[in-house]
Amino acid sequence: MNDISEAFVSSLGLILFLDAELLEIILLSFRITFYAVLISSIIGIPLGAFLASTHFRFRNAVVSILFGMMGLPPVVVGLFVYLIFSRSGSLGWMGLLYSPTVMIIAQVILILPIVCCLTFQIIESLHTRYHEFFRSYRIAKLKSVIAYIVDSRFELTTVVLAGIGRSISEVGAIIIVGGNIDHITRVMTTAIALETSKGNLDLALGLGIILLATAIVLNGFILFLRGKYLNTSGSTI
């Protein structure tokens, strides 16, 4: 018990004095998460909006596959990406294995279906209300998809936040493709796993506190947005 409290105090020291190693790991985590969520959102939100508001022949099959991909096991994704980017893999020539870039790619594969499917669910309900209006005024497809996205911006913000939460807490895939290399691909989750196994509990706990605080802040923000949305049912733009 003493060890834990000592480690806890020591970890607070690392946070308060902005330990360089801790800071480097945190910044890399946020950088990878930022790009992974940005790419997933740029692709996933319009794709989800398009799927929710368009009927085509294999739509249900596409949607079913995407929903199935929401539960992809991270280690399997990690292994899959590893095989592709390893020296003998089809994209091995790019030399991206054990780099932050490949970690972002793995994260995108994991987050994209989540962003896309949550967007689909949100916009499908809006589509039920809007589609007759859009049809009667002959609103162009692109304009209607943009309107769906703009009009569900509060709910979509929570989708992005959910993506951030999923990305920042991911460990299985990125430890395989990133290799957890010090100063290069070490992020909060992989560092916690490593430092715990080494018995270096203060750094592990420090990172754990930051990770936990990030999750709490994100969830708090989601609740705040939800409350704002429920109070106003949308706001002016």
């Binding site: 209300r129 809007y130 007759e132 005024y137 002016t236 733009i237």
Partner: peptide, 26 residues
Amino acid sequence: SIKTRAFVSQEPVILRRTVLKNILFV
């Protein structure tokens, strides 16, 4: 043509934006 018809439904369909932007949208 179909474009010269405008339909107003029983349940008002309002976009989540200002009154003015709702009108300009169409």
